[in-house]
């Protein structure tokens, strides 16, 4: 249903390679409208050259995150009415990542840090071995449960002031994934992982400001995971494992 009396003033970041600026568009306000709906309306009705990313539209793929009124959001699940201020919206590419064009950022630095954090499963068995039994009430599994619903949207990475201040910092998402693997009893890469998250850009740089936990659309708490990594690495140091 169109409310013909109401329009949104939407400022969208336009960047063709170094000439970044906001352009304002008038977008009709609709019932149950999401930020992704607004961006799509502009692209479909005003300027087809507007670039942005989305895929699933249901909060699973993690590809549509943008800065909305200065805060990182998953745009397909963010209702306009939740974030609009006096019928105005400001939509920009994710913070802390290089812009490719308009609202599209280069995610390479984000995923390179997952690799640097050794946030990749290292199997301890082959396909010929029997499956490792892990029960739902296993204490390590319960801890891992708190960290495994990450959709790689980079909202936490954009929210993190330490990433902004220290480009080497691995960031909340990569460290959160590392923590879930530290609690995976099937994983064979624990020593290398703890070493990887203890280097110059590692978990010890986190100031526990908890912006990642505040903005995570899946309500994960990467700060808690990072504090777990701090404890695990400290124990490993005190055991003279390194």
């Amino acid at each position: 249903m169109v409310d013909t009396e109401t329009f949104l003033d939407v400022s969208i970041w336009r960047d063709q390679g170094g000439d970044g600026h906001f352009e304002t568009y008038q977008v009709p306000r609709l019932a149950n409208q999401t930020i992704l709906d607004v961006v799509s309306w502009v692209q479909q009705h005003i300027d087809p050259t507007l670039s942005y990313r989305f895929a699933c539209r249901v909060g699973m793929c993690g590809s549509c995150a943008m800065m909305v009124n200065g805060e990182p959001r998953w745009t397909c699940r963010t209702h306009v009415k939740k974030v609009v201020v006096e019928d105005c919206l400001e939509i920009a590419p994710l913070r802390n990542l290089p812009v490719i064009k308009d609202l599209v950022v280069d995610m390479d630095p984000f995923f390179d840090k997952w690799v640097a954090a050794n946030a990749v499963f290292e199997p301890s068995r082959t396909r010929d071995d029997p499956m490792a039994p892990i029960t739902p009430d296993d204490p390590m599994r319960i801890v891992a449960d708190g960290a495994i619903e990450c959709i790689n949207c980079a909202v936490c990475y954009a929210a993190c002031d330490v990433v902004a201040a220290n480009p080497e910092y691995l960031g909340p998402a990569a460290l959160n994934r590392s923590w879930s693997l530290v609690n995976d009893s099937r994983d064979a890469g624990q020593a290398q992982r703890l070493h990887a998250v203890s280097a110059g850009g590692g978990c010890h740089n986190c100031h526990s400001q908890q912006s990642c936990a505040k903005f995570c659309p899946n309500e994960l708490n990467p700060t808690l995971s990072i504090s777990g990594l701090k404890r695990a690495t400290l124990k490993s140091l005190l055991r003279w494992d390194r």
């Binding site: 203890s198 590692g202 010890h204 140091l237």
Partner: peptide, 12 residues
């Protein structure tokens, strides 16, 4: 810029 050893030294 903070490694595990520097972190440990600061906490200690």
């Amino acid at each position: 810029m903070l490694t595990l050893r520097l972190y440990f030294a600061q906490r200690l």
